[in-house]
Design a protein around this nucleic acid. Structure first.
Length: 123
DNA sequence: TCGATGACTCCAT
DNA sequence: AATGGAGCCATCG
């Protein structure tokens, strides 16, 4: 599997996340059969977010870290903030900690299908 | 070719 | 329960 196929697999899984549900980088990696590639799932999502011109669109905002936190991607960037707005817009509660960290309750919104319950070639 | 990096996770303190 | 360190692996300089 090359990088393009990896991206495609990630997108096909992410597109199947139901509205008002979120999953984790690690779980997406597991579902596509590469459980140690959680970081690369993030890379794939980063690659499409600037323009977001994929068809159909990829709901990248529904992917968070294993703790339910939205990775900040460094101060000065607005990615995390946009993700928070997108989630709230679809009705997902985003809790904000004292330090400005954005958290989603995986207990309430977590979506963790077993590998095989999702199709990897959704165009 | 080697070393550093990162939208991550786990295990040990 | 909270913090810190190590593991992981494709990319990039």
């Amino acid at each position: 599997m090359d990088s393009a196929e990896f991206h495609a697999a990630v997108y096909s899984v992410v597109r199947q996340i139901p509205v008002q549900k979120v999953t984790t980088y690690g779980h997406v990696a597991k579902v596509i059969g590469m459980p140690r590639h959680s970081r690369h799932v993030g890379q794939a999502l980063k690659f499409l977010s600037p323009n977001g011109n994929t068809e159909p669109p990829v709901p990248w905002q529904r992917v968070v870290s294993s703790t339910g936190a939205i990775s900040s991607r460094g101060p000065g960037t607005d990615g995390a903030q946009r993700q928070r707005e997108a989630l709230e817009a679809e009705g997902v509660e985003v809790h904000v900690g004292r330090t400005g960290d954005l958290l989603v309750s995986l207990a309430d919104y977590g979506w963790f299908p077993a590998p095989g319950e999702v199709q990897l070639d959704a165009a």
